[in-house]
Design a protein around this nucleic acid. Sequence first.
DNA 1: CTGAAAGCGCTTACAG
DNA 2: CTGAAAGCGCTTACAG
Lengths: 329, 329
Amino acid sequence: MKTVAAHAGVSAQTVSRVLRGTGYVSEETRAKVLAAVTAVGYRPNAVGRSLRATRTPMVGLLITDITNPFYASLHKSTEAVFRERGLTLMLLNSDDDRETERQQLELVRSYRPSGLLLAPAVHSSLTTEDLVGFGAAVLVSRTLPGLAVPSVVTNEPEAMGEATRALLAAGHRRIAAVLGPQAASTTTRREAGYREAVLAAGVEPLVFYTDQTGPGARAVIRQALHTHPRITAAIGFNAPVTEGILTGLRDEGLSCPHDVSLVGFTDAPWMAFYPPPITVVRQPVEAMGRLAAQLVLDLVDGKPVAPEPHVVPSTLLHRESVVVAPPGP
Amino acid sequence: MKTVAAHAGVSAQTVSRVLRGTGYVSEETRAKVLAAVTAVGYRPNAVGRSLRATRTPMVGLLITDITNPFYASLHKSTEAVFRERGLTLMLLNSDDDRETERQQLELVRSYRPSGLLLAPAVHSSLTTEDLVGFGAAVLVSRTLPGLAVPSVVTNEPEAMGEATRALLAAGHRRIAAVLGPQAASTTTRREAGYREAVLAAGVEPLVFYTDQTGPGARAVIRQALHTHPRITAAIGFNAPVTEGILTGLRDEGLSCPHDVSLVGFTDAPWMAFYPPPITVVRQPVEAMGRLAAQLVLDLVDGKPVAPEPHVVPSTLLHRESVVVAPPGP
DNA sequence: CTGAAAGCGCTTACAG
DNA sequence: CTGAAAGCGCTTACAG
């Protein structure tokens, strides 16, 4: 900037004023400065600006795994909102590991970001006080008992209940709920919806926990089919788990929907053209992302944000993977 | 840091020395400083450090779309390499748009990163001189004529040739190559492999360009099937295009592999359990990511890096979507 | 409308 | 082994 100033024959502050477009600058000086900027090939330095501002125009997005399409969509939708406001999204992976999560959090914090969007690891040890320094922190998708910050979730109990009732209505009585890790808030909430629906129908709950990956779910469903050979329907916790269930069925020589009806939680592109197309609870990822990003912006602007979870509704999308249950013994 | 220094009764430089673990510090002073650090709840400020260093310990990763699983995997594999070296990966989406790409590039540059990993947009206008200021810049997956920087690609012509020959060997003679945008280097390289294989067999090339998205490919394959009703096989440019082909076949009441055999370029989880499991060219994404990241590190370390493209081989994975061609007229 | 001074938090020589 | 000084690039009051 000093070089530009010297070249234009003005002071550094004047250059700053021209570049920021703030305050009064004569047309003549502005032109001189702009000419000098291109002449010396000046590129602004965001580090200097951030240091002076004691705040970096960045928002951290701490998730567990970017290869999970849910989080990839979340990144895309939040990034668009922040970019419009001149904020850069800084993506951090926790690998769903408590220690890595802490390290990554320290890392974002060291850059003095303007905000944080967080989907905590399953066994996260984070508490509210770990989030001091992040003026604006918002949880998304997953919540955590010890973390008193605003959050955005979907209506998991209701949506899971609806999925379960769709299977019950088709006559299914042995419905496996293939969930995620028992410690995850998402599992707890979806399990509650499932149990309530199943109990209301006088049907015994069949709950299985997984590590919410495809291979993990594949092993679990195979085991489940051996222990409970009369299972006629399953619900997949997320897209990878739904993949795992289909792979497991294939392993066992069973077909969907002929032998086992299936409802997935969270849509994926392949589910639309898979034979059969998979009936799913469609999570409004983009809407959740946009809302969560907006809450961060509101906090940044000092606007009040309700502490209760912000709920964006999911909807059940009927496709062809649920059929009438075979007559039982 | 000043607060810590005051609390410990030492100077700021001593605090700095203790924190960086460099230079001589007496055990006693070190203990005092460490105690003061926890007492005042000191958190290092990366912005101050970066300003002084005139370089931020970050590497930019500029891609077109994080919801493309290929790029999500690329992020994951490169991030792991950089994290080990204490570098943070900064993810930027160009949306495959030339202007956005430039803006995002300016943005990373303003943070004075240590390096850049770049998969250029299809109609990118970037040239070598746009990359000054990025000491270490490496292209990954896509290359660009005007960009003379090291690159990591896969052996696209050979792999595409192999895929084509697998279909030819099964007796197919009307094989549609459903490619990406004509301007993309990936399209050019894969098309070359296809054409060479097909011409060697005395078969007429059937080339179709798409925007490399599922919906785009779906429309294109439907059109192609109307224009060339005797197509008996197709090759999908990437995972989304392969999805689009399957959806398009479904639209037209055709089945894979009975009516149309299919080979995909780039694997996806669902392809393993889809009925039929899809035969694919498996791109070594993780290996490409690790190598590209390593090249950036080598450049950062001032080690020499070969300017020729670094090729990581893909392999054809035979599954069940290729069957013997129906007898033609 | 424009400039001189100070400082954001850190580290790098340079003294002692 | 430890400290005083300077400066990385910028912006914010404060003068004029």
